[in-house]
């Protein structure tokens, strides 16, 4: 992947800005179920609260997602992480990084914050065990210097959760 931790700190392009404003308007009109956008004046970083779906392991649990947009959003994927504490999930590391292909290799500019949120909630909902990824400690240690998950070479092996 491209070096997006640096890019995400760069100001949004005009195209990105326009698109994010449209997304925000659409979100306000029609927010995805189970999500709440915490209003800030920062268009480039959204904080979104997610509530575990009823009938799942995470029912009624509340978590916070942090979405950072790169300069060339939507050509580049946003960086999406869970703020502490991250849910216990086989694809969510304790530092909040999420192993989900659409956030990295499979990102498409036709995707939206809303669609990403739905994918994350779907990933949570389909979990059968509340546990950390097997390589959690090693990975988190590697990320100690504040590395973005977008710089990780992810290996997407599990299509069930």
């Amino acid at each position: 992947m491209t070096s997006s931790s640096a890019a995400s700190r760069k100001a949004l392009s005009k195209i990105a800005c326009n698109r994010l404003q449209k997304e925000l308007v659409e979100w306000e009109v029609n927010p995805p179920t189970g999500f709440k956008h915490k209003v800030t004046d920062n268009l480039q970083r959204w904080i979104i609260e997610v509530v575990g779906a009823p009938g799942t392991l995470y029912e009624s649990e509340k978590y916070q997602l942090q979405v950072d947009f790169p300069e060339h959003y939507p050509m580049e994927a946003p960086q999406v992480i869970f703020l502490h504490p991250a849910p216990l999930h086989p694809h969510i590391y304790s530092n909040g990084h999420i192993c989900l292909d659409i956030l990295y290799d499979s990102w498409s500019p036709a995707m939206t914050v809303s669609s990403v949120c739905i994918s994350i909630l779907s990933m949570l909902s389909s979990s059968t065990a509340k546990q950390r990824p097997a390589d959690n400690d090693r990975y988190v240690k590697n990320c100690r210097n504040g590395r973005s998950p977008k710089e990780t070479r992810w290996w997407f092996h599990d299509d069930k959760v």
Binding site: H72, M75, E76, S106, S108, P109, A110
Partner: peptide, 17 residues
């Protein structure tokens, strides 16, 4: 312009890949 930029970035269709 959008599809041009997308193909440049990803070489695939944003909708169906």
């Amino acid at each position: 312009s959008c599809i041009k930029a997308s193909i440049k970035a990803q070489k695939k269709c944003p909708t169906c890949r």
